[in-house]
Simulated assay, not measured.
Amino acid sequence: MNETFIPTLTYSAVANPAVSDVAQHVYSAQASLPSHWGVPSQGNWLSRDTDLTDQAANRMTACTGVLPSCDEFPLASTHQGAAFSAAGDWSAVTVSASANSSQGGITGAFYTSNRMVEGEKFWVKAILANGSASW
């Protein structure tokens, strides 16, 4: 076991076109938010937050008024979500319901396959349909 390894959660519009709205949001957010969340060269990893109350607070903070299908970054399932980050250091946009659903499946599979438990760190990479990567 490599205790220094930090896995990467990837939202690829190339591999999964249904997630393209989310990939675009993450790509833009990583470039523009002050903390550049999830980008290794910036050193600001995300950490999993399994507390459902925290996740609800993150969603409420980020998604109030963002209808009908809100995508927030950093993810609601992280300690860096909107309820725990400074104003202006998180983003929320409307995405298609299918993109949001695809993101949920990708994220859940990532957490399961990497056996991610409370507090574990990870990076996030977005790949747009044209192949451009966020890092």
Rank of each mutant, 00 (worst) to 15 (best):
Q55G: 06
N2K: 15
C63M: 01
T94F: 01
P7W: 11
A57V: 00
P40R: 13
T107Y: 12
W135N: 13
A56I: 01
S35H: 07
H25C: 13
D89I: 03
V39R: 10
E3C: 14
G105S: 12
A83D: 05
E3M: 10
S134W: 10
S35Q: 10
A56D: 03
L128Q: 11
V19A: 02
F73L: 02
S35Y: 08
K121D: 07
S47K: 08
V117M: 05
V66A: 00
W37C: 07
T8G: 08
T61Y: 00
S134R: 14
L52F: 10
S77L: 05
A129N: 04
S69G: 03
F84E: 07
H36D: 09
D21R: 05
W123H: 08
G104F: 12
Y111K: 14
I6D: 10
N16P: 03
A126K: 07
M1P: 13
H79S: 04
L52Y: 15
W37D: 05
E120S: 13
A86L: 14
A57N: 00
P74N: 04
A15Y: 03
F122K: 04
I106Q: 11
A15Q: 08
A15V: 01
N130P: 06
C63Y: 00
T78R: 06
V14E: 06
T107C: 09
V26N: 08
W45L: 15
V14N: 01
S47A: 13
S77C: 09
T53S: 03
D54H: 02
R59C: 01
L33R: 05
A23H: 09
A56P: 00
I106S: 04
W37L: 05
P74D: 05
S28F: 12
L9I: 06
A18L: 07
A57K: 00
N100R: 10
C63G: 01
I6S: 12
A126H: 09
L52G: 06
Y11E: 10
A129K: 03
F110H: 07
F5N: 14
A86E: 07
S91A: 08
F73H: 03
Q103C: 14
T61A: 01
A31G: 14
L75A: 02
L128F: 09
G108Y: 15
G104T: 14
L46D: 06
S41A: 14
S12C: 04
F110I: 08
F5S: 11
S132P: 09
S101R: 15
A18W: 03
M60N: 00
S102G: 09
P34C: 06
K121L: 12
G81R: 00
Q80P: 02
N114A: 12
Q103E: 15
T107W: 12
K125M: 15
M60S: 00
T50F: 06
G88M: 03
S20M: 06
P40E: 08
E3Y: 10
T4W: 15
R115E: 08
Y111A: 12
L46M: 11
S98H: 06
T10N: 04
N58R: 00
S20I: 05
S101M: 11
W45I: 13
N58A: 01
G119M: 02
A15S: 06
T112E: 15
V19P: 02
V22P: 03
V117Y: 05
Q24E: 13
E118A: 04
N2F: 11
I6K: 11
A109H: 07
W135F: 15
D49L: 05
P40N: 08
